[in-house]
């Protein structure tokens, strides 16, 4: 008999093993919600799948007469706009600052401690400041995402850049490369896969900041809707929304990982062969 730690599932086995907990959880929920529904049809805490599907259909397909738009799509568009803008700013600034801090000791000495200090401030604690300073509009929400994820990404990329083998940096210089050329041709391309990895890891926190900001001050958005319908205990709307948010996050994660594999095959040697 093999040791437990040496037993490896095959491809099919892995699929079955991975799907099992999901199926068990869904089945358990279905049984529990049906039992609740049979005992009390007005029960709201554990809505049945049928009830959730009905409400999801209403939110995703029917025009809300008050606003003249379809709520799910309007919320999604608003939230993704904020998320995308925030992440784009965070990604661009972390790439720029991460490379600069990682490559240039002068800048590392100047801004390293500052970035380190900023990155330990809990972003949610700054949210009131942002709302006071920038009002309740889009700027404060986008800034919360930027301030929430950028410092961590900057530190990660600066550390990664500084950890590039010094032999490579020296070698580039012996081939005549200037500081700019080392940054452009040696550091930047090697940092890109790490940037994508860092962005993938930041998706979770970014959603947290997005939904927090929307919950507190907003009139549209996924987080706004979830916290709005909470007042009516509308679990049949909240749960499909949560599932939709999770699906979006998984989708972005998959797309980013595919981009990295396609664009930087040398960074994924196991997948390339």
């Amino acid at each position: 008999m093999k040791r437990l730690l040496n037993i490896r599932p095959g491809a099919g086995g892995r699929f079955v093993l991975g799907a099992a907990p999901v199926l068990v959880a869904l089945a358990a929920y279905a049984i529990a919600s049906q039992a609740q529904h049979d005992a009390n049809p007005a029960e709201k805490i554990l809505p049945t799948f049928q009830a959730m599907a009905r409400q999801a259909g209403v939110m995703a397909l029917q025009v809300d007469p008050q606003t003249g738009t379809i709520p799910l799509w309007q919320d999604t568009a608003a939230s993704l706009m904020r998320l995308g803008t925030g992440l784009a700013i965070a990604t661009a600034s972390s790439l720029l600052l991460g490379l600069a801090l990682g490559l240039l000791p002068i800048l590392r000495g100047t801004f390293g401690p500052f970035v380190a200090a900023v990155s330990v401030v809990p972003p949610i604690a700054i949210l009131p400041i942002l709302f006071i300073t920038f009002g309740l509009g889009e700027t404060a929400k986008v800034l919360l995402i930027v301030l929430g994820v950028a410092p961590v990404m900057i530190r990660d990329l600066a550390g990664f850049t500084a950890a590039l083998p010094s032999e490579q940096i020296i070698k580039a210089q012996t081939l005549g490369a200037s500081t700019w050329q080392v940054a452009l041709r040696v550091a930047l391309p090697q940092v890109m896969p790490r940037l994508i990895e860092s962005l993938r890891l930041s998706l979770g926190p970014a959603f947290v900041f997005l939904i927090s900001a929307e919950a507190i001050a907003s009139d549209v958005g996924l987080g706004y809707r979830v916290f709005l319908v909470r007042r009516y205990l509308a679990m049949d709307i909240i749960l499909p929304y949560v599932a939709w948010i999770a699906l979006l996050a998984v989708l972005f994660d998959l797309v980013l990982s595919q981009i990295s594999r396609r664009a930087y095959p040398w960074a994924h040697p196991a997948a390339g062969r």
Partner: peptide, 12 residues
């Protein structure tokens, strides 16, 4: 010019 024992070439 230099050749090190390791990391002398650019992996990307």
């Amino acid at each position: 010019g230099v050749v090190f024992q390791r990391y002398s070439v650019f992996p990307h």
